[in-house]
């Protein structure tokens, strides 16, 4: 299942942080949430999610604890740490600025230069 829209490098972390910022989620939940908030436009290779999660935990941006999922199964839930929240805000700002700049660059007409 080839994704329609490939992820830019580094954006997976940002998406995960955003997904989790709305409330603690387990791995599969994060995947579903990213699908929802991107309107299904961004698809992620499922297994690739986990190395990213482990890395974010090690960097101290996420914390994980075991709990019970909605279907009554044991599951590992991820949530943002204070550092993670700060990191997300920063990254989101940077991203928006970059995206705006790129969009404006791409929207430029030849005669405007």
């Amino acid at each position: 299942m080839a994704p329609d829209t490939r992820l830019l490098p580094g954006t997976l972390d940002l998406l995960i942080l955003k997904a989790v910022s709305l409330g603690p989620l387990h791995g599969y939940g994060i995947l579903v949430r990213i699908g929802q908030i991107s309107g299904g436009a961004l698809l992620i290779e499922q297994g690739a999610l986990y190395p990213a999660l482990f890395r974010l935990v090690r960097q101290g941006l996420l914390k994980a604890k075991w709990g019970i999922s909605e279907n009554n199964r044991r599951a590992k839930f991820y949530e943002l740490t204070a550092a993670g929240r700060k990191h997300l805000r920063q990254e989101a700002d940077d991203w928006n600025r970059l995206a705006a700049a790129i969009a404006s660059a791409l929207g430029t007409q030849p005669e405007e230069v």
Binding site: H26, Y28, V32, Y50, W66
Partner: peptide, 17 residues
């Protein structure tokens, strides 16, 4: 073992869906 459990849970959730 936790890693195992987590990945298996993921696959089961997907299968449920």
């Amino acid at each position: 073992s936790e890693m195992d459990e987590e990945l298996r849970a993921h696959i089961r959730n997907r299968a449920d869906d």
